[in-house]
Simulated scan of single mutants.
Amino acid sequence: MRLFGKYLWILFKAQMQYRASFWLLSFGQFFIPFSVFAGLYFLFERFGQIRGWEFFEVALVFGVIHMAFAIAECLARGFDMFSGLVVSGEFDRLLVRPRSTVLQVLGSKFEFTRIGRLLQSLIVLVWAVAQVEAHWTLMKAATLLFMIVSGTMIFAGIFILMAAMCFWTVQGLEVSSIFTDGGREMAQYPLNIYQKWVTRFFTYVIPFGCVNYLPLQYILDRSEGPGFLYMLMPLAGCLFLVPCLLFWQFGVRRYRSTGS
């Protein structure tokens, strides 16, 4: 972790060499999800509710998912840009160093400008928590925290999976946007508004349903059964990360240098 902290500090200082650019990019990142949230607001302004879900209930999910995506995009940006390391042959250099390739790829790129997106998501989340009709307890607050952590793990896992595909395809695949950007847009709404096959896929394969829909049922007192089960449901995101890392190791063992 000390080495990881040094990676963070070095890249932060490098990005702050151009402070005007850094703050302008952060400012732009603040307004990217803001426009999406404005669309969400006008949607509910027109129709009132969607499948029984009120505006602030969906805003709570919106804040959680976009905050998780912002954190994952900041910390796991190295995997998102990993194809460049393969094409240039720079990954060969990482292999001969006495540290984990996961740690080194994580430390190769950080997007601190995503603080703008993170701040906007935090504002929406705090507003939704203050306005939503829920009896807040310590367990529910912990559940909300677990939702954010789990969402971050799922997005990071998707980045890792897409990066591992580069061992066979060399170039990154645009299809990954279906599960990153597309997953973010889909998961900002409760899953029961979609078709059943979509709900099942994003619950049992990519467990976004364990991040937004199921824990939200518990927070809003709509769940049945022991509350602690719903509280632990977001841990599925951590479990999702395990096969992603195993697939990464599988790809590393079969990697052949590009010869660059």
Rank of each mutant, 00 (worst) to 15 (best):
N192A: 07
F110I: 14
Y230W: 09
V126E: 11
M147R: 03
S21Q: 15
L220Y: 13
F250A: 15
V242F: 13
G48L: 07
W9P: 04
V61G: 00
E174Y: 07
F12R: 10
A70K: 01
L216H: 01
Y218S: 06
G172S: 12
I206Y: 04
V64S: 00
R253T: 14
L214S: 03
A187E: 01
Y189S: 09
A142F: 14
C74W: 05
E133F: 12
F79S: 03
Y230H: 09
L229R: 05
R99Y: 14
G63V: 06
I219N: 06
S260V: 11
W53I: 14
F27S: 11
G225L: 09
T203P: 06
I148C: 00
A164I: 06
I178D: 07
F4W: 14
P98Q: 15
A38E: 10
L229E: 05
V87R: 09
S108G: 13
V149N: 07
L229F: 12
R77V: 05
L95N: 10
F37I: 11
V205W: 09
F228T: 15
F34C: 05
T152V: 13
M231F: 15
W127H: 14
A59V: 07
G259W: 12
V242D: 13
Q217N: 11
L60H: 13
F55W: 11
R117A: 11
V211A: 12
T169Q: 08
L40D: 02
W248P: 02
L95I: 15
